[in-house]
Amino acid sequence: MFIKDTFVHTVYFWLKNPADIDTFVEGVKGLAQISQLRDVHVGVPVPSEKPIVESSYHVSLLTLFNSKEDHDVYQVDPIHQDFLANYVKQYVDRVMVTDSVDA
């Protein structure tokens, strides 16, 4: 089954200190309160021996929206802005973001 009519926003976080993962995950999970989100998944990498599998990040965030417009509202939501100021700036060394829509 294909997921249709969806804007997908995926974020990978590399932490300054991996020991902070529990605190950081708690902050990421707080984003689920934002009403524009359709679905949210917060994850950690699965160890893999395969060289093609990227597993150097510490935390991933997969968010699904009904539209790009919903995503844009999410970006400026006070909860998201608080997360950026109080978690990303404090705990994150590197971030990679991908956005995609239906092909």
Rank of each mutant, 00 (worst) to 15 (best):
M1I: 08
M1K: 00
F2G: 11
F2E: 10
F2H: 05
I3S: 03
I3W: 07
T6F: 02
V8D: 10
H9R: 03
H9M: 04
Y12K: 14
Y12M: 15
F13I: 05
F13W: 04
W14E: 01
W14L: 14
L15N: 04
L15M: 00
K16V: 08
A19H: 10
D20T: 13
D22N: 12
F24V: 08
V25H: 11
E26K: 14
G27F: 02
V28G: 02
K29L: 04
K29R: 12
L31G: 05
A32K: 06
A32I: 08
A32F: 11
I34N: 02
I34C: 12
S35P: 03
Q36Y: 13
Q36S: 09
Q36A: 06
L37R: 03
L37I: 09
L37G: 06
L37Y: 03
D39A: 14
D39Y: 10
D39W: 13
V40I: 11
V40A: 05
H41D: 01
H41A: 10
V42S: 03
V42E: 07
P45Y: 00
P45C: 00
S48L: 00
E49S: 07
E49G: 03
E54A: 00
E54I: 02
S55G: 11
S55D: 14
S55K: 15
Y57W: 11
H58K: 09
H58N: 15
V59T: 00
V59G: 00
S60A: 12
L61D: 12
L61N: 05
L61S: 03
L61W: 06
L62H: 13
L62V: 10
L62E: 09
L62R: 06
T63Y: 06
L64F: 03
L64M: 09
L64C: 10
L64T: 04
F65Q: 02
S67R: 01
K68P: 02
D70V: 04
D70T: 02
D72E: 10
D72N: 06
V73L: 15
Y74C: 13
Y74E: 13
Q75F: 11
V76G: 04
V76L: 11
I79E: 11
I79Q: 13
I79A: 13
H80S: 07
Q81I: 11
D82L: 08
D82W: 08
L84A: 01
L84R: 12
L84P: 09
A85N: 13
N86C: 05
N86W: 03
Y87N: 09
V88I: 08
K89A: 14
K89Y: 10
Q90V: 15
Q90L: 14
Q90C: 07
Y91A: 02
Y91C: 04
V92E: 00
V92F: 01
D93R: 14
D93N: 14
D93C: 03
R94F: 15
V95I: 05
M96W: 11
V97T: 09
V97W: 13
T98I: 13
T98Q: 14
S100N: 12
V101H: 11
V101M: 12
A103T: 13
